[in-house]
């Protein structure tokens, strides 16, 4: 549990950070909350020669509303997400999900940018961002671009982010007022990654589902947006048969690993159970 040697950088602007990244390529890694990279370095599973601490970059902080969307700076901590009144009123599922990440000490340091950018399938925010149809603002040597969360994840720890690029913010379209939501997470203990988790955001109108979005955490090597399940559910009254079909469709896209949380079959089934429970809770919360 002793890391190898590395050079520590502490830039104060995004441009400076990107410049350091660009000059060292694969040998450099950004440091956000550090909950993933530092243990990996201590285990010597990661050995970056340059560690770029982003905590001095003021521009990466903060939560604001911008033309129908919520923009959250990448270095905003999970604790700040939980404490935000703006998020509590516009995107309460972020608070609900954040409270299920690890424990308060970790949430004081863990950031939304680190959580979404690392590509760890165990992280909770990526599936939630897919569910909310968020996109990530990314800055590299050639300027800024936006990547949809649903297009961002390629495999475990592999994303659409280039080595010299930095996620600077997440942009989340504000869902309609009165939307129903739920994040259901099954885990073995505080601090554990999900055995399986499901994020649901839906709107109801006259007793039937007018829009629905579903994504799953840690039951594949990427977060999984359950498009087919969404299609099945949209327009339905969430009757038992429809829910069963949607759950089956969601289970069908899972490819979980067998590990200490349980064999693959169990984790797939738990994704279904979490989805079922999230749907029920989201529907109960939805107005209309």
């Amino acid at each position: 549990m002793i890391p190898g040697e590395f050079t520590y950088h502490r830039p104060s602007t995004v441009a400076e950070a990107v410049a350091i990244l660009a000059s060292h390529g694969d040998e450099a890694r950004p440091l956000a909350g550090g909950h993933s990279i530092i243990p990996m370095m201590k285990l010597r599973m990661a050995a970056p020669e340059h560690l770029i601490d982003l905590s001095g970059v003021a521009d990466l902080k903060g939560i604001r509303e911008e033309g129908g969307a919520i923009v959250i700076g990448a270095m905003t901590t999970q604790h700040e997400l939980i404490a935000s009144d703006l998020l509590a009123s516009k995107l309460p599922i972020i608070r609900e999900t954040s409270l299920l990440i690890a424990d308060p000490q970790i949430r004081y340091l863990g950031t939304i940018g680190g959580n979404v950018a690392n590509g760890d399938p165990g992280n909770d925010m990526p599936a939630l961002m897919q569910c909310l149809n968020a996109s990530y603002k990314v800055v590299g040597p050639n300027g800024e671009r936006e990547i949809a969360a649903r297009d961002f994840y390629e495999a475990a720890y592999f994303t659409a982010l280039a080595p010299e690029e930095l996620v600077t913010a997440v942009v989340i379209p504000v869902p309609p007022a009165g939307h129903g939501f739920a994040y259901e997470k099954l885990k073995r203990k505080v601090g554990d990654y999900a055995t399986a988790a499901a994020a649901v955001v839906l709107t109801m109108s006259g007793g039937s589902v007018s829009s629905c979005s579903v994504a799953l955490t840690n039951v594949g090597d990427t977060p999984l947006y359950a498009a087919e399940a969404c299609d099945i559910l949209t327009g339905s009254t969430l009757d038992a048969d429809t829910v069963n079909r949607a759950v089956a469709a969601a289970e069908a896209i899972t490819r979980p690993a067998s590990d200490g949380r349980g064999p693959a079959e169990y984790r797939t089934k738990m994704a279904g159970v979490m989805l079922r429970r999230a749907l029920a809770r989201a529907a109960e919360r939805a107005n209309g």
Binding site: D103, R188, K189, V190, G191, D192, D259, G260
Partner: peptide
């Protein structure tokens, strides 16, 4: 050895 860390080796916290 599978899971020889506190990630997998169950050491309950006050919550559990």
């Amino acid at each position: 050895v599978m899971g020889a860390s506190f990630m997998d080796f169950f050491l309950p916290t006050a919550v559990e």
